[in-house]
Simulated assay, not measured.
Amino acid sequence: MLKVLMGLCWTLTYLVIIRRGFADQTVGMPLVSLATNISWEFIFAFVYPHGKTQRIVNATWFCLDLVILWQLFQFGNTAGLPDALFYLFVILALVTAYALTLLITRHFQDWRGQYTAFGGNLLMSVLFITMLLDRGNLAGQSIYIALFKLLGTAISALAFYRYYPVPRIIHWLSLAIFIFDVIYLVMVYQQSIQLGLSVWGRF
C-alpha cells in the first residue's frame, strides 16, 4: 500500500510539473534534477530492474520525465545560448548523471537504488528552492508540486523503513529532504499570496 501511494504521489508531481510547464511555457524541473531522475528511472527500470510493479512505476516515471526533457529543450534555454551549445550542455548533464548513478549503484552494490534515490531527491529539494528564488515568480510551479513531492518522499521513506533494512545515512537524508520540502511548500504558498494567485486553484 505504501509503495502504491508513493508511486501515485510522485506520478502526480510529474503530471503537475508537465501541466504547469505547458501552461507557463517553461520547464518546471531544474536540469540537474531532471538528469538524475531520468538516469535513476532508466537504470532501475531497464538495467537493474526492480520487481514487476516497481519496474512499471519506474518506467512510467521515465516516460513522464521524457516529456519534461522535451519541455526543457523547448523552453529551457533562458540564457539565450546557441541551440547547438544548449543541446550539448543538456546531453553532457544527462551522460554525467547517468554515469554517476550507475557507478554509485555498482560501487555500493545498491541494487534498490536507495543511495542515489534519496541523494538525488535531496538535491532536487534544494534546487527547487533555488529555482523559485532565481525566477522570483511561480512559473512552472504550484502548491501541488510542492505538496505531492513532500508526500511522495515521506511515504517513500516510510516504505523503505517498512520493507528494508535502512542505513543510518538514509535517516539523515530523509530528514533533510523533509525539511527542505516543507520550506519549499511554505515558500510557494507565500509567493502565491504575494502575487495574488489562487493557492489551491492553480494546478
Rank of each mutant, 00 (worst) to 15 (best):
P82L: 07
L158N: 11
G7Y: 01
A23H: 08
T53F: 14
I155H: 06
R162W: 14
T36P: 02
V32Q: 07
I155K: 05
L132C: 00
G140S: 01
F73T: 09
L147D: 06
M29N: 04
L64T: 07
A59Y: 11
M1C: 09
V166M: 14
A93N: 09
T78E: 10
M131S: 06
L151R: 05
G119L: 04
M124A: 12
L147H: 04
L102T: 12
I155G: 09
F46L: 11
G136H: 01
P167G: 11
F44I: 06
L12D: 00
A45M: 15
F118L: 03
N37E: 05
A157P: 10
T96S: 13
F180W: 07
R20S: 01
L197W: 06
I18T: 00
L2F: 08
L72V: 10
F44N: 09
L123Y: 02
S125A: 13
L197Y: 08
Q109E: 15
I177W: 06
A93K: 05
D24T: 05
F118I: 01
V182E: 02
S39F: 07
D181T: 04
I17F: 04
G152H: 03
G7N: 03
G51H: 15
F62G: 01
A79V: 09
G152V: 07
L150T: 09
Y87H: 14
L8F: 08
L64R: 02
V126A: 06
T153N: 15
L150D: 06
R162S: 14
P82A: 10
L158Y: 11
L12E: 02
V47N: 11
Y87P: 06
I155R: 07
A99R: 15
V95F: 08
S33K: 03
V182Q: 08
L123C: 03
I145M: 05
V27I: 08
R135V: 04
G28T: 05
I104R: 09
R19V: 08
L64H: 02
V199A: 03
T101C: 13
N137A: 02
F89E: 15
D134M: 07
H107N: 13
